[in-house]
Design a protein around this nucleic acid. Structure first.
Lengths: 342, 342
DNA sequence: CTGAAAGCGCTTACAG
DNA sequence: CTGAAAGCGCTTACAG
């Protein structure tokens, strides 16, 4: 039989075992690994050899207990499979790795208890920091936080200061989108995606920007052109568009609060035989990859997800290292990506 | 000043503090929390009261060190923002929560070292189990695994037995897709997405199923109709379709190895003014939500992601509880979802 | 029904 | 340049 014998037990190898084999103290093994203090070349070699021999790998739980950290950060979003969040998480995971952190994902699905749990630090000591894209949390609930795990909010700005936050200017984004439609001569511009969730949320801000742009363009505000949606899936956009058309309020343009809603709206417009953009122009927000391949391709407000992810991560890591500091609200510039739908 | 005074230090409250306040031993506090042994009602009340007073929450690192577990499972996929994976992860996260586990995500991006790292248990003691959707790992590399963290493979079957695996029958799936096209009278059926990665992978299996179906249908195998792609993004599908048309090999149907490729192909077909499905029929695999809203909607092979996620999770949790057991290869049935593109 | 003590595997003052 | 010892916060035999 070739190959060396298989280890009797996969056994947990500890610093002690390595130390014994290398004929040094656990202290030294630890120092070789951490580089925290000088160790002679010769000793280092022996230690490394022993580590190799035994296939030693440090036990993270023990290290974490001792160091009072975990190397983990949590990112909590309403739904992982909503492309905007999936793309954002991708950037977060990449960035975290560069800083030696691993990412744990949580899905709140709009459940307040789930957001509460996240805000209260998940389980104590489970993560070093938290990135949360909130949906329903109110300011009061943040203030009741019984946990001091660093927390940075994404996307949605909670009313008032005092909480770290990274996102785009939602009022301006909606205004830019709506103005884009008005500039192209559209007069009856509908808005799909209004909501008034308990926490405040981005939807009212987008509605605000929409109305602001109408005003600037000298267009009347027609409430029948504003369609609220329960969620922000393709289905919601498709239904909202259908409802709008059924109501007889024929728009010549639609500003959708997210790309997913816009993609759903495109689907309905096609079914109803309406030409986009000739008869109805459509614009969304998020700049998800899907909009580059839809028929027609989708004009959108691009939030620069890589920058949002990186900025949020940097802010969070700063908080982890240096607690206590003035909370920051960072606004990331957005751009308009024109494509075929307008 | 109303409200009670803020705690001088957010201080780490430990079992010891709770025990002291409740006038019991740490042992008892621990037992109240775990329910591992009977504690008198009265004592329980005192302990719970103390916990509440102090806002105590157990330190996970310490518990993990003691219990030799973490309550974490890792799920590693090539790309988080590929809809198929995002949807799968969603189900995994949901299922894991039901079992009291939290999910840590990793993105391998097809890097062998990243897959190696995952297979070697990430960092020791960091996770209790691993779900990996591999890309390039070879069988030999699995055999060299220096770690015994339970591991279940998703999607891609590694050559040979000996490793837990959950996925669909890729040969049959490709065969069904191709037959569906042949059954509708298509004679020149192209295939987009062939690859021959080092680990083996699903692509060759899908090509095999494609050829098998051609044979059954009495159609000739034309290598010029098989277009390999570097990745499985929309862009790759769009380019492959363009290359195919440019080559002059006009197909009347296209079997794409994933929905994303198919969506890219649809984009190109539209640009070139070819009618789908009249002139060219298109089918994919994955059943991502996007295909229900594309123009036209996309016929696809649906892998039943909820079942895949749940089965993989169940298998993994079984391994975590009961190590040592015969490795299982579970094949999840797929279905064909017919939509407008065929 | 309850407690005192040991120990999980690390790292870091303290000491030389 | 190196080591002996303490301790992070838990849980679980062992004992009563």
């Amino acid at each position: 039989m070739p190959k060396d014998q298989r280890p009797a037990t996969p056994a947990a190898v500890s610093v002690r075992d390595v130390a014994a084999l290398a004929r040094v103290s656990p202290t030294t093994v630890s120092n070789v690994l951490s580089g925290n203090r000088r160790v002679s070349e010769e000793t280092q070699d022996r230690v490394r050899w022993a580590i190799d021999q035994l296939g030693y790998r440090p036990n993270l739980s023990a290290r974490n207990l001792r160091l009072n950290r975990t190397g983990l950060i949590a990112v909590a979003v309403p739904e992982i499979d909503v492309p905007y969040f999936a793309e954002l998480i991708r950037h977060v995971v990449q960035g975290a790795r560069e800083h030696g952190y691993t990412v744990l994902v949580d899905q709140t699905e709009g459940r307040i208890e789930a957001e509460q749990f996240v805000v209260d630090g998940m389980n104590r000591g489970m993560v070093d920091g938290i990135l949360l894209s909130p949906l329903g949390m109110t300011r009061a609930e943040y203030d009741q936080r019984r946990d001091d795990t660093p927390l940075v909010l994404l996307g949605e700005r909670i009313v008032g200061k005092g909480i770290d936050h990274v996102g785009i200017d939602n009022v301006a984004a909606a205004e830019d989108a709506t103005r884009h439609l008005a500039d192209r001569g559209r007069r009856r511009i509908a808005a799909i995606g209004h909501q008034t969730p308990r926490g405040g949320g981005t939807a009212p801000q987008r509605t605000k920007g929409y109305r602001k742009a109408l005003r600037s363009a000298g267009l009347p505000y027609d409430p029948t052109l504003v369609v609220p949606t329960r969620n922000y899936h393709r289905l919601d956009g498709a239904q909202a568009m259908a409802d709008l058309l059924d109501s007889g309020a024929l728009p010549d343009a639609v500003f959708c609060y997210t790309d997913l809603l816009a993609l759903g709206a495109l689907h309905t417009l096609h079914q109803r035989g309406l030409k986009v953009p000739d008869e109805v122009a459509v614009i969304g927000i998020d700049d998800i990859d899907e909009g580059r391949y839809s028929l027609p391709t989708l004009t959108t407000i691009s939030p620069n997800k890589p920058t949002i992810a990186q900025t949020a991560l940097d802010l969070l890591l700063t908080r982890i290292t240096t607690k206590e500091q003035d909370p920051q609200q960072v606004v990331i510039p957005h751009t308009l990506e024109q494509r075929e739908s307008t």
